[in-house]
Design a protein around this nucleic acid. Sequence first.
DNA 1: GCCAACGTTGGC
DNA 2: GCCAACGTTGGC
Length: 150
Amino acid sequence: MKYWLMKSEPEAFSIDDLKRKRTEAWDGVRNYQARNFMRDSMRPGDQVFFYHSNCAEPGIVGIAEVASAAYPDPSQFDAKSKYFDPTSKREEPRWMLVDVKFVKKLKRTITLDELKGHETLDEMLLLRKGNRLSVMPVAATEWRYILTLE
DNA sequence: GCCAACGTTGGC
DNA sequence: GCCAACGTTGGC
């Protein structure tokens, strides 16, 4: 089993939204590296840190689980969607996604600022300068360590 | 709202 | 294949 971190802007889709809906198709990823992680490496049952980005208190707010294999992101074919990609063909979809299932909310937000203060997490992808990936792997050691911070 | 740090696009 | 221009992400 692998571990991941997925970012979402809480104004667009928050951990509370996921809790209410139980499962969500993680659509709208339009970055090749992030897509490749979902398409090639994610498996049902993998665990996910749910991260709130671009907000007052960025940080890890909950845990989710990969709930499907990768399949084509339907929004790429929807002309009314802001994720519409006119260059993607149905016979050869460019963008893939997975379903993500709610597991739990953390008792508190483990903030980005706090994560930066732990030497153990120095190598964490999330904390690398300039990293803007919305889907990224988390090392098992990092996963376990972060859970002890809750 | 600002802007650094990207990734993508397209002219050449 | 280079690289300038442009668009996006996301912390602050």
